[in-house]
């Protein structure tokens, strides 16, 4: 395990990333946006700033912006990890070394996550302003941080998967944004559309809005980050109050499982010679 965390790709990626001026710029812009919008909000609306300890709006706004930034940054950081190696013609050489494809994928993911986590941690002091205005429990803060961390992990692995699957970084980035959009917005829309359709088609089967208590629909809501985020923030979005289980736990298990699948699938796709169990043929073995 110790050797994994000192593997050459981690060292190289860290050197490359943190020597680049781009990294400093990203961090600066991120902090500017994350700090600028809430501060601007307070300046524009001094009445809310005056209500110390009673105003939740700033917390909701900060959490919303934070989540939007994570959705924007996390896939972008990993969507070029493998396709970038391919584009600058270093991937073939890397694949002829003794590093396994799993090590390469995990190292790429960890270095991207390290930077995403740096962005996340760097913005945490901004929440001290939020805390000033109150109405936020430490438990909510902890849940929010964990929620963001799981999103970073999932979106990072999604970007990495797209980067391995698709040759061009530009296409891989667009695809990972598209898939992320499906999970963030699409699952929510599906929840509403399917629920409403069922309700209208079979009103006798689902009296008193009973359709929203269907376990399949509730699971669909449970994988929608917006529903879960609202739950963590203590707000309710249409029909989200009818969920009978803890969406936060279901959400975490679901996206952590998807992350593991994406990582292993990427490692498989990266192998120059891929094997499927049915492709093995009996061949004469040469004696060395």
């Amino acid at each position: 395990m110790n050797s994994f965390f000192f593997n050459p790709i981690l060292v190289k990626e860290m050197r490359e990333r943190f020597r680049s001026k781009k990294t400093v710029c990203i961090l600066a812009i991120y902090l500017l946006i994350m700090g600028g919008i809430p501060i601007g909000f307070l300046l524009m609306d001094p009445m809310k700033a005056a209500a110390l300890g009673e105003n939740r709006n700033l917390f909701l706004l900060s959490a919303g912006i934070h989540y939007a930034m994570v959705c924007f940054v996390a896939p972008a950081l990993t969507a070029g990890a493998i396709s970038g190696e391919r584009e600058r013609q270093t991937l073939q050489i890397l694949l002829t070394t003794q590093l396994s494809t799993r090590t390469i994928i995990l190292s790429k993911l960890i270095t991207s996550l390290a930077f995403s986590c740096l962005l996340l941690v760097a913005t945490m002091p901004l929440y001290s302003i939020v805390m000033l205005y109150g109405s936020v429990s430490p438990e909510q803060m902890a849940k929010l941080i964990l929620f963001l961390a799981i999103n970073v992990l999932f979106l990072g692995s999604l970007g990495l998967f797209c980067s391995t699957w698709i040759k061009r970084t530009s296409v891989s980035t667009i695809t990972s944004y598209g898939i992320a959009f499906f999970f963030v917005v699409g699952t929510g829309l599906l929840f509403f559309f399917i629920g409403e359709s069922l309700q209208q088609a079979y009103p006798e089967l689902f009296p008193d809005d009973g359709v929203w208590k269907l376990s399949q629909l509730q699971m669909l809501a449970g994988i929608n980050p917006v529903f879960v985020l609202f739950g963590i923030l203590g707000e309710s979005i249409a029909h989200s109050d009818q969920i009978t289980f803890s969406p936060w736990l279901f959400f975490s298990c679901f996206y952590l499982s998807l992350t593991v699948i994406f990582v292993f699938w990427s490692a498989y796709l990266l192998k120059p010679i891929r094997r499927t169990w049915w492709s093995w043929k009996k061949r004469p073995v040469r004696v060395k």
Partner: peptide
């Protein structure tokens, strides 16, 4: 073949030495 940005010649070779 390409090379990595922001790595010196020594670091470049050390990276591959580590990879082997």
């Amino acid at each position: 073949f390409g090379v990595y940005d922001n790595l010196t010649a020594v670091e470049y070779l050390e990276f591959y030495a580590g990879a082997f």
